[in-house]
C-alpha cells in the first residue's frame, strides 16, 4: 500500500515530488555513474500496492504496454488499467469472463479532507503475481495463489496447483 500525503499540491505533483525524493536517496550512493538521475519524470513510477507492484507512466497515469497479469482469487486472471486521473480509480476487467464483478479489484482514493491523505488499497487476497516467466514467444507462465498458470493466445491454462502459495519464479 502506498500512502501519499500532500498539502496544496496536486496529486500528480505529489507523485513527482516522491520521485524527486527517490532521486535524493539514489544520489548518495557509489553507483552514481550507473544511475541516471535525470528525467525520471519521463520514466516509470513503480507503485507498491498490497502484494505486488504496478508500473505506471506518470505522465499519462496509464499502465505501460506490458500490462501486469494478476490473479485475484487464484483462479481468475485479470488485467487492469488506471483511469485518466492517476490513482483516483482503477478498474479491473476479467480476461476470462466479461461478467465478473468489475470492482473486485480497485484502488480507493480516501476522502480525507483534514489530512489530505490518499490511500491506495488493493481489495484482494494476498499473494498475487504479475507475469513472471516466459519460456518462448508463444507461452508465458505466471502464478496466482497456489496455482501455476500458462497463458498464450488461446487463453489461460491451470497447469498445477501446489499446497502452498507461490511467490516467485524463474
Amino acid at each position: 500500500m502506498l500512502i501519499l500525503t500532500c498539502g496544496q499540491l496536486s496529486l500528480q505533483n505529489v507523485v513527482k515530488l516522491l520521485c524527486i525524493l527517490g532521486l535524493a536517496l539514489l544520489g548518495v550512493n557509489n553507483l552514481a555513474a550507473q544511475i541516471k538521475e535525470a528525467d525520471l519524470k519521463n520514466e516509470e513510477l513503480i507503485i507498491e500496492t498490497s502484494n505486488y507492484n504496478v508500473i505506471i507512466d506518470i505522465n499519462t497515469g496509464k499502465i505501460q504496454k506490458h500490462l501486469h497479469w494478476i490473479s485475484i482469487t487464484g483462479k481468475k486472471v485479470w488485467e487492469f488499467e488506471i483511469s485518466d486521473k492517476i490513482y483516483e480509480t482503477a478498474f479491473a476487467k476479467s480476461i476470462i469472463s466479461s461478467d465478473e464483478v468489475i470492482n473486485s479489484f480497485q484502488f480507493v482514493k480516501k476522502n480525507a479532507t483534514d489530512s489530505q491523505t490518499f490511500n491506495i488499497k488493493c481489495k484482494a487476497q494476498p499473494y498475487f503475481s504479475h507475469f513472471g516467466y516466459q519460456s518462448n514467444k508463444k507461452n508465458g507462465f505466471f502464478f496466482g495463489g497456489k496455482n501455476l498458470i500458462k497463458f498464450n493466445n488461446d487463453g489461460t491454462t491451470l497447469l498445477r496447483e501446489f499446497d502452498t502459495f507461490i511467490i516467485s519464479m524463474f
Partner: peptide, 30 residues
C-alpha cells in the same frame, strides 16, 4: 555486499534495472 542506498525510513520494495541504459529504478513505501 556493498550498500549503495540507505533505506532511510523507507522500505525498498521493488527494483527495476533497465537493460538499455543501465539505470536502476527503485520503488518503495515509507
Amino acid at each position: 555486499a556493498k550498500k549503495i542506498v540507505e533505506a532511510q525510513a523507507r522500505i525498498i520494495r521493488d527494483i527495476k534495472i533497465s537493460e538499455t541504459d543501465n539505470t536502476v529504478l527503485i520503488g518503495g513505501s515509507l
